[in-house]
């Protein structure tokens, strides 16, 4: 579904991670681990095509992935239904919002303003938002931030359902979600400054 080989990612012209190779297929979960500031977010954004790789390439069809940063992109002044319908329309999802509402048990909350939801309910809405995009591959940056342990367990269960339904996910996280899957520890890939990034003149360094 998504593959990358010998990838170098960085920001501001400075390489952060290098020598990354990864492959994610249907039903796979890839957990990206590593200390803060190592470049997990940069890697995810590069995979999502939001920023260019410094070298190497990401091989992914453009309409397979949806990227969620750690903010959940929910408008508090819209109802749950309006939030979901918006994303379904933007992504021209063929099935509308019904499957996502059923999967995440949002039916009783549909007319509630998103700002009035509890943290766990918001997280469910945030995931449902990814589901209504109809994109099979989810890239999630620190989805467990500010969740308590029961919410994390719920998140893990939802993710497992997504994977079982033919989806895939790449997740940057500190926590072990308890789901079978690949783990990519970025620590050994941290750039040593050897790789000269594209367009960056060696004379600066």
């Amino acid at each position: 579904m998504l593959g990358a080989s010998d990838l170098v990612v960085g920001r501001g012209g400075v390489a952060l991670l290098e020598g990354l190779s990864l492959a994610v297929g249907t039903g796979d979960l890839l957990a990206v681990r590593g200390p803060n500031g190592a470049g997990k977010t940069t890697l995810l954004r590069t995979l999502a095509g939001l920023q260019p790789a410094l070298s190497g390439s990401v091989d992914v069809a453009p309409d397979t992935l949806a990227y969620a940063s750690h903010a959940d992109g929910i408008k508090p002044s819209l109802t749950v239904r309006e939030n979901l319908i918006f994303w379904a329309d933007v992504f021209a999802a063929p099935d509308g919002i019904a499957p996502a509402v059923a999967a995440f048990d949002l039916e009783p909350l549909l007319e509630r303003l998103a700002g009035r939801l509890s943290a766990g309910q918001k997280r469910r809405l945030g995931l449902a938002r990814l589901m209504v995009t109809g994109r099979p591959l989810w890239l999630m940056d620190e989805p467990t931030v500010s969740l308590d342990s029961s919410a994390v367990a719920a998140l893990a269960a939802l993710l497992q359902a997504h994977l079982a339904g033919g989806g895939a996910a790449i997740i940057a996280t500190h926590l072990d979600l308890g789901i079978e899957g690949q783990v990519l520890d970025v620590t050994p890939h941290r750039a040593q400054g050897r790789t000269a990034p594209r367009g960056f003149d060696e004379a600066f360094a």
Binding site: A48, D63, L65, Y67, H70, K75, V90, F91, T133
Partner: peptide, 14 residues
């Protein structure tokens, strides 16, 4: 931008 909507919009078919 703050709530991440812009990132998801940028990966949308728009």
């Amino acid at each position: 931008h703050e709530d991440g909507s812009l990132d998801l919009l940028a990966t949308a078919p728009l």
